[in-house]
């Protein structure tokens, strides 16, 4: 059986159930890299050029960990998933960049996803990818329909059951796919509700964000994430704030940020990667909106490989204190 390696990084969090279904339908075995470790991050960082962002360094670390484990590595080049919406250059060139910096990598299966070029080109691209496994176009068609259905189920599961991507993947594909959760001790009393916004590869990679969600939950908070919102909710917030999205995945930052800032919750925390151009522009839109509304506390955290745990912890503690003390004051005023 052909083994297809999928790095647990970048777009994995958005599309893993879809990719896995597609390859399994075509009779391949999917090998997933394990959760990010310091070793992966260091090995990835040692390969790329200096100004590469943290998520791409993590991605290369995952690819390196798969080198001897599979026959092919699947790295799509996602140019655009919506008309006239653009993706970061690092996503466009991901397969080529990986080939250049990891020459020992098994052959890379890539696919160009660009909806600007129309459906026909997209279908041709999918067929071209499927041809690695079968010459039967009908079989590829069936696999892609099943994959798309898996994707829709995945999205639905997250928005209707308020699940994070790791939780939804565990529910759909069984527990072996996600790292075991050590913390089952959810605090009974909910101190507040905190929304975290940003790209899933930052929000759910516990290594690079220093277990942010875990820390918030330990402090007794309910945590909301962008995936728990419906596409309509995300889009209407984007329309309100910037008119129309320019960047692919803008809904994870501007859409979710705009929505949560107006939904009467304790606070919103924006997570971004140091050196990410699109993030710095999008997060600023959210920051300005937070200042304009002046109702919901907002804080942004920038992650890079030198981010010390102490820095994250101190900021989180101060942010939560700010929310609790504000709440207490409001209660006092009411009484």
């Amino acid at each position: 059986m052909i083994r297809i390696g999928i790095p647990r990084a970048l777009l994995y969090y958005q599309y893993y159930p879809m990719w896995k279904t597609f390859f399994q339908e075509l009779g391949a075995e999917v090998v997933l890299s394990s959760p990010t470790t310091q070793t992966m991050l260091s090995s990835g960082a040692s390969r790329v050029v200096a100004d590469t962002c943290l998520p791409v360094k993590v991605f290369c670390g995952h690819v390196l960990s798969l080198v001897k484990e599979c026959d092919y590595i699947f790295i799509p080049a996602i140019r655009s998933v919506q008309r006239r919406v653009y993706n970061c250059a690092k996503f466009l060139g991901l397969p080529d960049m990986t080939k250049a910096v990891i020459p020992e990598s098994p052959p890379i299966l890539d696919i160009d996803i660009d909806v600007n070029k129309g459906k026909r080109v997209l279908y041709q691209a999918i067929y071209k990818l499927g041809r690695h496994f079968t010459w039967d176009p009908l079989k590829v068609r069936r696999a892609s329909i099943a994959a798309w259905q898996a994707h829709l189920n995945y999205r639905e599961l997250m928005s209707s059951h308020s699940l994070t991507p790791p939780q939804a993947i565990e529910k759909m594909l069984g527990s072996s796919e996600v790292e075991p959760k050590t913390h089952s001790s959810h605090s009974t009393s909910t101190q507040g509700t905190i929304a975290i916004i940003g790209h899933p590869y930052l929000l759910y990679d516990e290594h690079i964000n220093h277990r942010l969600i875990h820390r918030l939950e330990q402090a007794g908070n309910k945590v909301l994430t962008p995936e728990m919102l419906t596409t309509e909710e995300l889009e209407s917030a984007i329309v309100k704030l910037v008119g129309r999205a320019y960047w692919t995945y803008e809904e994870e930052v501007v859409g979710a940020g705009g929505h949560y800032l107006e939904s009467r919750i304790g606070g919103v925390i924006g997570i971004m990667a140091f050196g990410c151009g699109p993030d710095s522009l999008m997060m600023d839109v959210v920051r300005r909106q937070a200042a304009r509304l002046n109702t919901t506390p907002f804080m942004s955290l920038t992650l890079e490989e030198h981010t010390a745990e102490a820095g994250v912890v101190t900021r989180l503690e101060a942010f939560l204190d700010m929310i609790y003390r504000r709440k207490r004051k409001q209660v006092e005023v009411c009484v």
């Binding site: 002046n294 506390p297 920038t302 820095g311 101060a318 700010m322 003390r325 004051k329």
Partner: peptide, 12 residues
């Protein structure tokens, strides 16, 4: 009004 509304800290 006596409550913290925003804060910032230097990075590395």
């Amino acid at each position: 009004d006596g409550i913290v509304t925003d804060f910032g800290m230097n990075t590395v």
